[in-house]
Design a protein around this nucleic acid. Structure first.
Lengths: 339, 339
DNA sequence: TTGTAGGCGTTATCAC
DNA sequence: GTGATAACGCCTACAA
């Protein structure tokens, strides 16, 4: 790893604000003002705009940032391998919302390239020297990336409660406890008595909080009715198989994600249990798959659109120096055929 | 879109090089020197290193860049929708290679988030204000993004010939003409006389150059034996169907990508043509699919590993101020059962 | 080897 | 409204 040319890097040759100023016959300050939409005389403004166009000036971001301007880039981070996250239509739609809103503020979004490698590694190397605000998804409890960022005063906003970092990180989450309580209450009202849960990963906030909601609502808690999953279809299948074997009297299974619920559905069919007659099945997220299963899934809908709005506004607030804060979005029970 | 607080952004509160210097009892220059691995007295070095650790100093990239340091970020750009590009195992492996090599130089790679939207749009909005070197894949001839970057003196390296920008953009490409000539020569040597081609998109270098190789090698050129595809399996099917119908006497089909060749194979089977007895089929890229078809595909192998090496070194050269240049990688004919 | 002084390109403050 | 001018944090000639 030989050191490269130590010589000062050749000037970029790019036009600066001074070039524009000279061309327009005004001072650099004035150019900066029109660039930033501040008050400027009509004549000067015209002259500057002409110069801008003629020269093809593009501001230097680094200089801008150094001088205290708002960042023009936010970094999207997640720890889910293989772009499974972006494959989720809900997440994708929300991301598009964010992109649009941020775009209006002239802020773009980038993400580290993992290239098939672990995004965790990419994230780690990236956050080691990142200077831009970060938007993080599915942040596991032990994430050191968050610590790094926080300790360097990088504004961070997470999707979901940043377990262990609630005080230093802004976040938007959904009212998981309420959502699960609604589900359990509904199942109860339909006469279900042995209600099981397939949780998400317990190091992710969704895993923890949905289980908490379940415990709150369930009354007498039976550990035999709790199985852990990882949000995937396969884990839904496995969980249901285990439940049906272990506690044959189960008459309702709530899965903490629709993907898992779909797995549960198929496992029930496989085991010869009729849904919803023998056992009710409920999911979470109201993902597209919820309406393409048979029967369709009772689930909890997250207001993704408003969620996205909150996310970006949290981000912008942090960027503008506000303190960290969390917002909790209400959710809505969607009843379909599976219960 | 109300203007936000105009007040100077509050100081980040992050430690600067001066804090470190004060702590270590040396000057800022000295700190900078140890940071950059320049010559420093042993005592000073130790003091600085202690201070660095104690304070948890992290350099400000923007300041660094402004002062003329090498970029620590390169941007990966492509115009293929839906992450189809990253789904290609060859591309992926190469990218990993690049990531590793760049990582050794403390350079990370990011890419704009398209969020299911068109990467072209993401690229456009991004390049509009990008300041970091760019690595571009599958750059179509008309790409204005390249123009933008070049005009702003942003170092650009492309995978494949940057049609129309060869003088201002560094690139790495494969010897497509030679590869195709080898294929055609081989098919000839096996007695094939009516050799057709399914091209790639004609606005991409691979499309143009592989067709060029075909024309060079084929001798008497029959337009009826040329069908255009877009590198996808589906287009391979469509192309083969059209060829078999239009020119039933065709006895060899070369497809400009293995994915298309796989389509050709299936279309032949569908049409009741035996491969290779009735018609020989050849692909290009030596993608994983080339060995999972029946029969396996004769194809052209690209030395991805060395390719990646060239790519990063081109990038580093550009970053260090060298002029743009192109390198052409040799390719290797791989003969398998399909011919 | 080490400190000092400019400069990188931009923004914001302060007089005019 | 406008022009100087001082930061911003870092790097590197230059001088000591």
């Amino acid at each position: 790893m030989s050191r490269r040319a130590e010589a000062r890097r050749p000037r970029t040759g790019r036009a600066t604000i001074y070039d524009v100023a000279r061309f327009a016959g005004v001072s650099a300050g004035t150019v900066s003002r029109v660039l930033n939409g501040h008050a400027v005389g009509a004549a000067s403004r015209r002259a500057v705009e002409r110069a801008l166009a003629a020269i093809g000036y593009v501001p230097n971001q680094h200089a801008r940032r150094l001088a205290g301007a708002r960042p023009e880039t936010v970094v999207f981070l997640h720890c889910v391998p293989g772009d499974r996250l972006l494959a989720d239509p809900n997440v994708n739609a929300m991301l598009l919302d964010c992109l649009r809103t941020l775009g209006e503020q002239h802020i773009m979004m980038v993400t580290p390239v993992a290239g098939g490698g672990s995004p965790d590694v990419a994230t780690r190397t990236l956050t080691a020297r990142l200077d831009d605000p970060a938007l993080m998804f599915s942040v596991p409890r032990a994430s050191t990336a968050v610590d790094d960022l926080v300790s360097r005063h990088v504004p961070v906003v997470t999707c979901g409660t940043p377990l262990g970092h609630e005080r230093h990180v802004s976040y938007v989450t959904t009212d998981d406890r309420d959502g699960v309580q609604q589900i359990v209450a509904y199942l109860r009202s339909r006469g279900r008595r042995r209600i099981a849960i397939v949780t998400g990963p317990m190091d992710l906030p969704g895993g923890v909080q949905r289980l908490a909601g379940y415990r709150d609502a369930i009354g007498t808690f039976d550990p035999a009715l709790v199985v852990h999953g990882d949000y995937t279809y396969a884990s839904g299948i496995a969980a249901a198989e285990s439940l049906l074997r272990r506690t044959p009297d189960v008459d309702a299974i709530f899965a903490a994600s629709d993907m898992m619920a779909a797995g549960v559905l198929d496992a029930c069919a496989q085991a010869g249990r009729r849904v919803p007659d023998d056992v009710a099945v409920a999911g979470y997220d109201d993902a597209p798959i919820a309406v393409s299963t048979t029967p369709q899934l009772t689930t909890v809908r997250i207001p993704w659109h408003r969620y996205a709005g909150q996310l970006t506004s949290q981000l912008l607030r942090r960027i503008d120096g506000d303190d960290a804060s969390g917002v909790i979005m209400p959710v809505e029970l969607i009843v379909r055929g599976s219960t």
